[in-house]
Design a protein around this nucleic acid. Structure first.
Lengths: 198, 198
DNA sequence: TTGATTACTTACTAATTAGTAAGTAAGTGG
DNA sequence: CCACTTACTTACTAATTAGTAAGTAATCAA
């Protein structure tokens, strides 16, 4: 059992990971109900049944995507180089994550991709997405609270309300970027900075 | 040709309208790629081919939904009882529109429903949605500009940027309401009021 | 009254969907 | 070396999809 776990060096990913990566990309670029096992298989050069082997149903695949994103969120949030930043820098780090989506085929964020189709999603996927959104909102609320207490961030109302508002705006801003172009995203983020940065 | 056009009194709508109404409801409740002509037909008690008669392809049906919403937006915006309101009242009227969605099976707004699947939509539908969003944003920007000039609304930055930010937030807030419940929507709208109302 | 138009239904097709079952080739552990 | 597991492919099914073509009953215009 020498090396089953993921390595630090990025090697060629195995089929299981390649499926998950592509499914996630298609989810964020086209929506959950807009890609099939056939699409995935064709692009990966494998047969649809190979995907069923790793992810028996599309529900399993969808849930795996959200579960991985939740795992990534927790890991990122707890990373020393993120956790040790000042509130302003943490806020900027968050904006950078959303900004990165623009360069990747203008992907929307996970939440923005799944919210519209939410009722058609398998229940485990719904539950994971709720947890994802809740934890992210709680994290930002804490950042905002500390930022205001130390005088580097400025806003009225509760940190929880402001956090919900900001994250909702960011999710929506990526959607607007898809429908129009990157300009409105930059405009909206500029407005957020203008209001928040003391 | 006595009475082809729509009447003031609301009579039983014809099949064409019933199809469009149901398709719009399903679009806003489940997403564009999550309902079929069979779903519509079964619920309406007609055959799928009857829908093809009125809307030859699903692209036509989808486009008709967006076109009607655009027509409604223009009509609403130009209504004397809306156009003659004060900026604050116009802003509140806008909030009331979004708030109404909550009572209707927590429907998201048109934009929030179509943004994620945008790339899978027929081109005419994409174009109409862009126009819809642009006109709504321009309308609110004007409302905000007048409101600030007359001292009843308060915000920093340009009216255009603030308008884009507010509408994006509202679209996202309906999505959050779907994923969680109505509470975060009310929280976010409360935050908007807190910041904007001078 | 007849000939066209409207608003459908019936009956169909071709493509695509998720999913399954059985087979197989390459490793792996004991 | 042999039983077992892993990671697939081949071949299939049943359901669903959008869409079409032909037929029909009712209404309407000349």
């Amino acid at each position: 059992m020498a090396n089953k776990a993921q390595q630090t060096t990025t090697l060629a990913p195995d089929t299981r990971t390649r499926i998950l990566d592509l499914a996630e990309a298609l989810l964020l670029e086209r929506g959950f109900n807009a890609f099939s096992y056939q699409h995935l298989a064709k692009e990966l050069g494998i047969k649809p049944a190979a995907i069923h082997y790793h992810y028996p149903s599309k529900d399993d695949l969808g849930t795996a995507i959200v579960t991985r994103q939740l795992r990534r969120l927790r890991k990122w949030r707890d990373l020393p180089r993120v956790a040790n930043l000042s509130p302003v820098e943490q806020f900027e780090a968050l904006l950078a994550v959303y900004d990165n989506h623009l360069g990747q085929e203008r992907r929307v964020c996970l939440f923005g991709s799944l919210a519209a189709d939410f009722r058609t999603l398998p229940l485990p996927m719904q539950a994971e997405l709720r947890t994802f959104n809740r934890e992210l909102t709680e994290w930002l609320a804490q950042v905002l609270a500390v930022g205001r207490a130390t005088g580097t961030l400025r806003f009225v109302g509760s940190p929880a309300a402001k956090s919900a508002q900001v994250l909702t705006t960011l999710a929506g801003a990526l959607q607007v970027a898809r429908v129009h172009d990157e300009t409105p995203f930059q405009v909206i983020v500029g407005q957020l900075r203008l209001e928040l940065l003391a």
